[in-house]
Amino acid sequence: MNTTMQTLLKKGNALRHKVQLSRIFIYVFLIIMSYMFLYPFLYMIVTSIKSQADLFDVSINWIPSGAEWQNWRAAFVNLDFSAHIWNSLLIVSVCTLGHILSCAFIAYGFARYQFPLKGLWFVLVVLTIIIPSQVIILPLYLTYTDMGWLNTYLPLMVPCFFGFGLRGGIMIFLFRQFFIGLPRDLENAAKIDGCSFMGAYFRIAFPTARSSILVCFVLSVVWHWNDYYEPVIYLGKSSQWPLPAMLPTIYEKYLAASAELTTNADSIITRGVLMAAALLVIAVMLLMYCVVQRQFIQGLEHSGLSAE
């Protein structure tokens, strides 16, 4: 009796030992991975406060000798931050609003109704995801020229209200998954009580899709905020450009400065200024992500992409 107990205990200890070991391995692996994922952000932050002397000093890696806030001021001026941040905010908020309204609306039709050619239309939605927008960028440019939309924000904004714009198809797909998983009972009850089909959507289905709306919001903000490809093509005047479109000029100045290896001028773009500018460009987006990250990740996890 006693001996069997002991052997059992020993076995249990060995097992616990093994589990503990695999746990330690998982933590070490995850921490190394976190370092890799955080690296670009840590690098940008540290470099943005390095003085020129620190930048050239190879012994200084992570801890600068002091904070050089001058970099941030230079970045602010070079980006023309106070003017372009409004362009960015305007474009991104209108586009995101358009995506949320249109993609949820379209997706509801696909999820709830049976109609002729439904399969075909959905294949076309998938096609809009697969075809890179760059393939049709020139004809689109010509179309907008004919419409007289060039040098306005319309080419960026209007497609978003029709389920197009940047990866609108993916948003439609996400919302469709959500509505398919949503029980019909509430809407049916409302319809019995005399609610119209539009009322059932706007008063019940759409507000219930809160988690998907948040996911769509974050994805749309991130994709539109980072986009500098389309704005630069459609907007001739650089005063209309969003923030990220200002970064290439600064980067060119930086490259020119580092090629000449001049160290005397004050107005020079150092790597510190460049990194401060990069951080300023993504600052609003980072802030937004920090505020909604928990609900966002949960929403994306529960977006109905189940393994069944």
């Binding site: 249109s102 239309w121 076309l124 010509l142 179309t143 089909f197």
Partner: peptide, 30 residues
């Protein structure tokens, strides 16, 4: 029921012809 379904996907259909199909055809011709 069918009509209501089409009303919901109408924005996509309009967008498809305006911002996708016509540029696509133009791009093939080019």
């Amino acid at each position: 029921h069918k009509l209501e379904g089409y009303i919901f996907i109408l924005p996509f259909i309009v967008g498809f012809f305006l911002f996708f199909l016509s540029p696509l055809i133009r791009s093939i011709t080019l």
